[in-house]
Amino acid sequence: MSDYILYPGCSMETGARAYYDSLKAISKPIGLNLKEIDDWNCCGATEYFGISKTPAYALIARNLALAAEQAANGTRKVVAPCSACYLNLAKADHYMREQPKLGRQVNEALAAGNLSYKPGSLDIHHLLDVIIYDIGLDVVEKNVVRPLKGVRVAPYLGCMVPRPDYDHRWSDHDLPVELDMLLKTLGADVVDYPLKTECCGGHMPQISPATAFEMLRRLISVADERDTDVMTTICPMCQLNIDGYQGEMNGFFGTNYHMPILFFTQLMGLAFGIDPKELGFGLELVSARNVLDAIGVKAPPETPPAPPRRPRKPEGLPMPTPLANPQIETLKKEVTK
C-alpha cells in the first residue's frame, strides 16, 4: 500500500462527486491508501490571486501546514485530484522557496493561527502523476478485468497539470502521453486528440460566456470529428465546463453535440469491474450511457483483427522518427512487462 495525504478540494464533494466516488472505489485495488487532510480549506482556485497576493498564498499554505503536521507521523506525499488544487499547492510551495520574502510573510500570517510551513517539506502530486509514476501501469494492468474494448476515448488533461510543471514530471507540455498510456492499459481505443491540454475556459462561463463557448466548441467539435465516444479528464473544472455548459453552448451556436465526459478514475473503475453505481456513473449531465453499453451486456460482436498489411513501398519523402523520450520508454516497458 502507498500512503498519501489527500487534499480533495471543494468540488470533490459537490460538482465532481463522481470523481471522489470513483477514486475511493479504485484506490483499494491499486493499493492507494488516502488520508484526508483534517479540516482542509478551499485553495482559492484562480480567484484569490487576483484579489490579494499574501492572503491568497496564506489560504493555500494553511492546507500545507496542516498536511505537514500530519506528515510528521507518516508519509510526506500529498495528492490532489483537482488540477487547480494541485497547482495551487505546488505553486505556493514553489514560490515560497523561490522568493523567501513571500515565504516569510506567509509564515507570519500562518503564525496568527499557530501554524507554520517550511516550503519543500511536502512532496505534492496530482492524482494521475501518482497513478502513472508511483503506482505504475503494471499494477493498473493487473486489475483490468473488463477491458474497455471498442470504446473510443479522447484523453483530455486540460491545463494546470502538464503546465507549468515546476518539477518537470510530464513527458510534454502540449501533448503528454501519460493519460493515453493509462487508457491503453485499460483496453480503450485512444483517440488521437490534439487538444488534450487546451484550456476548457476555466471560469470564463462566468466572465465572458462567448469566449467560454468558443473554447468549448473547439474542444467538443474536434473530439466529435474524431469519432469520440467519451472524453475523459483529470480535472473537475474541465468536466464541469464540458459537461455542464455543453447544453448552453449548443444553444449558443445552434449545434447539437452530445459529447459525454467522465473522470479517468471512472473509466479505471469500470475496467476494474466495479459496479458503475459506485463510480458515480449517471451523475454526468451529458449521459455516458453509451460507454456502459459498449462494454456491458450488449457488447458488440468481436470483429476479427484485420490481417497485417504488407509494408508498402515507401511513397513520397520519409518522415523523421519520433524523438526518443526515456520517460515514455520506461512506461512502455512497464506496460509490456
Binding site: 460538482g15 490579494s52 498564498y57 489560504l59 506567509v106
Partner: peptide, 29 residues
C-alpha cells in the same frame, strides 16, 4: 437533482484560525 450542488454551504471546523490567518495576511499585504 444529481446532488452535484449543495443547497447549504459546508463550513470548516476551525474557521477562527483561518480568519486570524487571513486577517494577518491582509495586514501584511
Amino acid at each position: 437533482s444529481k446532488k452535484r450542488m449543495n443547497l447549504t454551504p459546508t463550513r470548516i471546523k476551525n474557521m477562527k484560525q483561518l480568519k486570524a490567518i487571513l486577517k494577518r495576511a491582509k495586514e501584511l499585504e
